[in-house]
Computed example of a mutant assay.
Amino acid sequence: MKRLVPVLVVATILLIPTAAHAAAPADQDYVALGDSYSSGVGAPGQSGTCLRSPNAYPGLWDAANDPATYKSVACSGATTDDLRSSQLSALTAATDLVSVTIGGNDVGFAPTIITCTLVGDSACAAKVDESLEYLRDEMPAKFTATYAEIRAKAPNAKVVVLGYPILFDEAATSCGFAGMSIPKRKSINKGARELNAAIRAYAQAAGFTWSDVTDEFAGHGICGASPWLHGLTVLPPTNSFHPTANGYRYGYLPALNAALA
């Protein structure tokens, strides 16, 4: 079965206690984990195979707060399995702060968007709906294991799990060349909301801090008058459906700051 944007199935998970840590930013050791929404795809200054940018929200937070140490190991295309196999080595018992976005690639974010770009409204909706079985069968264990391993590697850290923006403005009648129809936008947005709800449930069950970015991005969806997200992009194509520089600075960064307040 193809991995597509999921529909929430709430599972009962035992709460893992969160370690209390109140270090000031100047004393903190900060590690950013996750996928392209944490590495900075869509922002200026991307480099390397992971497409990391100093203009992603972790780099912006580092520049504004000057923590004792900062390292981003977030990588474009990363799944929960990738995070567990290649990113956790950056964490130690001395890590004070961890931020992470993860889950979108597990459920096939890119294939879903590509499919919806090429097919009709009902086929797009069907592709989104197919994710229900995948979420039920696979994602509970993946989220639970990922968050448990983060806690084990960084037992003293405050861990902030950030969600994904709702991609599309649903009111605009036109979305440009090869743009999504309103029914497609609604289907994809529905999937994003339910993906966020699932991530929130498992993150909070793990004792982590959840940060929902949907309020920060409200009014700035693709097809709208003031988007903070790239639509379909030719050069570079990887920027497609990722935050712009404004999306990271005025969307994700305030969401992280709010979670740390």
Rank of each mutant, 00 (worst) to 15 (best):
M1W: 14
K2T: 15
L8T: 09
L8I: 05
V9Q: 13
V10S: 02
I16H: 04
A19K: 00
A20M: 00
A20C: 02
P25Q: 15
P25W: 14
A26N: 00
Q28A: 08
Y30K: 01
G34A: 11
G34Q: 03
G42L: 04
A43V: 06
P44K: 14
Q46G: 04
Q46Y: 14
Q46A: 04
T49P: 11
R52F: 05
R52C: 04
P54K: 03
A56M: 09
P58M: 14
P67N: 03
Y70V: 03
A74N: 06
A74G: 13
S76R: 15
S76H: 09
G77W: 15
T79Q: 15
R84P: 02
L88T: 00
S89T: 10
A90C: 11
L91H: 03
T92E: 03
T92H: 10
A93I: 02
A94F: 07
L97H: 11
V98N: 04
S99E: 06
S99K: 06
V100R: 01
I102E: 11
G103S: 14
G104N: 07
G104Y: 06
D106V: 09
T112Y: 10
T112H: 14
I114F: 03
T117G: 07
T117F: 11
A126T: 10
A126E: 11
S131N: 11
L135A: 12
R136V: 10
R136H: 11
E138D: 08
A141Q: 15
A145K: 10
Y147G: 00
E149R: 09
E149N: 15
I150K: 07
A154Y: 12
A157G: 05
A157L: 05
V159Q: 08
V160I: 12
V161G: 02
P165R: 08
E170Y: 02
A171S: 13
C175Y: 14
M180F: 15
I182V: 13
I182L: 08
S187V: 15
G191E: 12
N196A: 00
N196V: 00
N196G: 01
A197Y: 05
A198H: 05
R200K: 09
A201K: 03
G207H: 13
G207T: 07
W210P: 00
W210M: 02
D212V: 02
D212Y: 08
D215T: 12
E216V: 06
A218K: 14
G219E: 08
G221T: 07
G221Y: 09
I222P: 09
G224K: 13
A225N: 11
P227L: 15
L229G: 01
L229M: 10
G231D: 06
L232N: 10
P236C: 09
T238P: 07
N239Y: 14
H242N: 09
H242I: 09
H242G: 02
P243H: 01
P243Y: 07
A245E: 09
N246P: 01
G247I: 12
Y248E: 07
R249G: 02
R249D: 06
Y250H: 09
A259T: 01
A259C: 01
